[in-house]
Write a protein that binds this DNA or RNA. Sequence first.
DNA 1: ATAAATAAGTTTATTTTATAAACCAAATTA
DNA 2: TAATTTGGTTTATAAAATAAACTTATTTAT
Lengths: 97, 97
Amino acid sequence: MFKPLDPLLHSELRLAIMSLLISDLEAEFPYIKEQTGATAGNLSVQVDKLAAAEYIEVVKTFKGKRPCTICRITLKGQQAFEAYIEALKSYLQVSKP
Amino acid sequence: MFKPLDPLLHSELRLAIMSLLISDLEAEFPYIKEQTGATAGNLSVQVDKLAAAEYIEVVKTFKGKRPCTICRITLKGQQAFEAYIEALKSYLQVSKP
DNA sequence: ATAAATAAGTTTATTTTATAAACCAAATTA
DNA sequence: TAATTTGGTTTATAAAATAAACTTATTTAT
């Protein structure tokens, strides 16, 4: 009846992060922060969780002299996002069997 | 960019409850329990939360000699569910502005 | 008749999670 | 050179989800 919702994606901020990365493929930390309106601390924690699950990969480089954290969605992450949307549909479709 | 997600609905079990009630309008506690696969304790807590927000109303009657708890979605609940779906779309649509 | 099992929940306790506050280091600006 | 900004991380707190334990009443079995 109801498909289970991946708890890693069923979180407002993590879903927003993944949503950005699904279309942009990669993005810098400050950009994600700005687009989601998240605090840096919260974003840092949630990025870590997505990275630990290998839904994204995090590359730390420099932009000039300043540190620059880039987040990139992985194939696994894209597949998980697709699956999450499919699961969500089981809750949203008003369907009598 | 991303619309905030009503925290009351952004919960797997509460969303499932509301999803059932959106199509059936009302349902008995054991039926919801069976359809969602939730434990009675968890269901009881989440039903209370939805009722406290007036997204559903809970009527306690008897069915023969046994107690019977009926949950019914309210207009406010229906509107909240619609709004939640609209908000969700901002996370799911891969749209570049 | 009475003991065991089932039904229908509720309450309480525990574990997770989300979130913000505090912190740190380096770079820039005043 | 002192203050501010940038780009974060770590730690602490508040809130949430969930299950375990409990309650009350009803059947069913002995």
